[in-house]
Design a binder for these strands. Sequence first.
DNA 1: ATTATATACCTACAAGTCTTAGGTATAAAA
DNA 2: TTTTATACCTAAGACTTGTAGGTATATAAT
Lengths: 114, 114
Amino acid sequence: MNNSNNAQLLKGSLSVMILRLLEDRDRMYGYEITQKVKELTAGEMTITEGALYPALHKLEADGLLTTETQVVEGRARKYYSLTKTGHTEAASRVADLSAFLNNLNLVLNLKPSV
Amino acid sequence: MNNSNNAQLLKGSLSVMILRLLEDRDRMYGYEITQKVKELTAGEMTITEGALYPALHKLEADGLLTTETQVVEGRARKYYSLTKTGHTEAASRVADLSAFLNNLNLVLNLKPSV
DNA sequence: ATTATATACCTACAAGTCTTAGGTATAAAA
DNA sequence: TTTTATACCTAAGACTTGTAGGTATATAAT
C-alpha cells in the first residue's frame, strides 16, 4: 500500500481496510479490492499485490475469511467473504483503528484545512 | 507505541508525531514526549521508549533534529529541536500523513460516531 | 501477426518500524 | 530499604509492506 510518494507510511491498516470493505459487501476478490480502493480515493491510494495477497491469506488462515473460486470470462477469481468470527473481528478492529485515529488527531492537533 | 490493547497498529506515524510536537515547541526531551502524548490522549496512547529513542536518533541522523544535553535536578536531559531542514520536512510529512488519513477515512467510510 | 494493456492470481527477499525485554542511574516517596 | 518516578539507552525478534519477480487469459492496438 502506498499514498503517492509516501511509501510505507502507516502499516497495520491494510487488513482493517479489507475487513471494513467486506463488512459492506457479501464478497470481493483480490483484484477487485485494489480497484475499489483506487476508486474510493480517486487514485491516490494504491494497494500493492505484494501486500494484499499475503494479507488475505493471513486473514483466511486466522479464520476471518472464507474463499470460493469461480471462473469468470476465462479467468479464475478467488472470492473472499467474512466468516462469523470475521464479522465480530471486523467490528472490533475497525473500532480499535478508529480510536487510534482519534488519538493520533489529538497529538497531531491539525488545523481544519491542512 | 500502542493504543490500549491494540499493539503495533499503525507504524510510521511516530516520527510524524514527534516532528509535529516539535513544530509547536522550541524543544522537548524524550521522556517529556512520552508524557505529553499520554496527556494529550488521556492516557490512551503510550509511546514506548524502545520505539521513541531509536526514532529520535534516526531523525537526528537524518539532520531533522539537533540536540543539547542539560542536567536538571541531578538528571541528564537530552533536548531535541527541529533544524531548518526539520521544519520543512515536518510540514511535508504532516501533510502527507494528513492526506493518507483522509484517504483511509474514504476507504473505511466510518459512520459519524463510531 | 504481434505487442501492449487489463485482468487475475501468486511468492521470495529485503527494508523498515515497533514491541518486548532487558540495562544504567538519580531523586523522592513509602 | 524498597518502590516509584524520572531519564537515558540497546538488542532481538515479530510483523507489515514494497519491490520485483513469476504465470496465465482476454482484449485492444499496432
